[in-house]
Design a protein around this nucleic acid. Structure first.
Lengths: 264, 264
DNA sequence: TACCGCTTGTGAACGCGTGCACAAAGTCAG
DNA sequence: CTGACTTTGTGCACGCGTTCACAAGCGGTA
């Protein structure tokens, strides 16, 4: 039973000659080597990808402030990670720094954008125009970097046709048609739990390959579809766990706490 | 590093089988051993905690459908993980299953709730009543499991005093006072980026130890404060990365990998 | 009571990500 | 041109988390 696995689900059909050392041998530090860059993207760890997005935001802010170059030390501090990790992350996408100097801000932004695929626009469809969906549709943060919300859907007949955030709401039955027409590549599910799976199926049917799911449901999707979920309840419960753990530690050690290790 | 942590040597001496551990020594699989349960919580991997929250939701749904027991196989399928991982996760919190039978639903719910600290209520404060904050304040999902939103804040004078989702909005200057009064244990930041750090500082000042941050900013907090961030832009960019990777794979393998809409 | 099949719990191996420490490589001053 | 200083890029080791595989344990059955 292949449920949904964001894991190493054999990508594509075959990649037989790729025993790859997982590490990059950096065959050629040549710039503008597109095929190599593409190849390299496959080796970027998932966790690093998320951090690259953060670096990108920080870099953009720095650029606006007129910064031309940054050292790994500065950038890592601003991004909240240690410098070694930052350099390692950047090394996954190539060698664009200058030893003794640092990285050129514009170059780094350009390269990260390329790796993240931000050079093309990704149409986003939001399904479920409730409180959250409404917020997402109006969210100014989405378009911030090339993610135009180009379609909205809901089941409620009263909402259909009403413009939200400048876009008319369609009925979810039109998901396949509208998404295909507008070449939606990312679907956002903000519906109540019971409707999530159905909506998901329609998005998949429409050819959407990436889904961002806000509904507290485990979606079943084909292997070729990527799902990321944002579960507020889970986040709160994880925090709750920490609150409890802290309280216990305090009670147990009388407030004494040694970084990481606790005497028992 | 001075601390080398007696990996296994510790108790050694006359223990032939050598439990090895450092992980769980599980001295006594006795139930109702509260101190031991508390101690154990500290050993639960972060990733497992998040999954436990998911299991909890699935279990609740099963309970409502009248299920009395579940096997690791059933539960794992419903939660979207493999059964081995599920059993390992559950083993972190104790041994509450019956071999040859499975787990009793009610018992498991109870134990997970205890470990996650859901036996006590956690007051939540939402700061920033914009689109997102508004949605969060009205969000019916929060209280779902003991997370009452008990305070709202914003800078906008026009919003102060206005009730949103049944609760009056306070000015952010009142964060310290109100949060202390209402014993807020979790703060949710849904403000624009520039205001996030300031708001965060006030929450910390008010004694809030856990923060859920929706603002695309890296918050600086004292060590004793736990922060979890939900960054929509990052999520989208990670998905974008996958879209790009897929397209590349398709191009590389000759356009195989199809679903109807693969560009080249 | 003895056997059999089923499911849990976990020891152990594996793999990935993280952090350290250093060589390589470039800049700048004299 | 040389030497000293700075910062990158990465080999390597460590530790955590995931996965496998199986012994232990329990219920049902003869």
């Amino acid at each position: 039973m292949a449920a949904q696995r964001g894991q190493r689900g054999g990508v594509g059909g075959d990649t037989p000659p790729a025993p790859t050392a997982a590490e990059i041998t950096t065959p050629i530090p040549r710039v503008a080597d597109v095929p190599a860059a593409r190849e390299r993207a496959r080796a970027v760890p998932e966790a690093a990808v998320a951090r690259l997005a953060v670096y990108l935001r920080v870099l953009s802010a720095m650029q606006e402030q007129g910064a031309v170059t940054v050292s790994s030390e500065e950038l890592s501090a601003a991004a909240g990670v240690n410098s070694a990790k930052l350099r390692k992350d950047l090394s996954y996408i190539g060698s664009y720094g200058t030893r003794g100097v640092g990285y050129e801000v514009t170059v780094l932004i350009e390269e990260i954008e390329r790796i993240l695929g931000l050079t093309r626009k990704h149409s986003v469809a939001v399904v479920g125009i409730g409180n959250l969906g409404h917020a997402l549709a109006n969210y100014g943060g989405f378009p911030g970097r090339g993610f135009p919300v180009s379609a909205l859907f809901d089941v409620d007949p009263d909402l259909v046709g009403v413009p939200v955030g400048g876009i008319a709401v369609h009925h979810i039955d039109d998901i396949p048609r509208v998404c295909s027409e507008r070449e939606v590549s990312i679907g956002v599910i903000a519906t109540p739990p019971p409707a999530a799976q159905t909506v998901c199926d329609r998005l998949v049917e429409a050819g959407v390959q990436c889904i961002l799911n806000f509904a507290p449901v485990v979606l079943q999707v084909p292997d070729h579809v990527e799902v990321r979920k944002v579960d507020l309840a889970v986040e709160l419960q994880v925090l709750s766990f920490h609150v409890a753990r802290r309280a216990d530690d305090a009670a147990a050690t009388g407030g004494r706490q040694v970084n990481g290790m606790v005497v028992s």
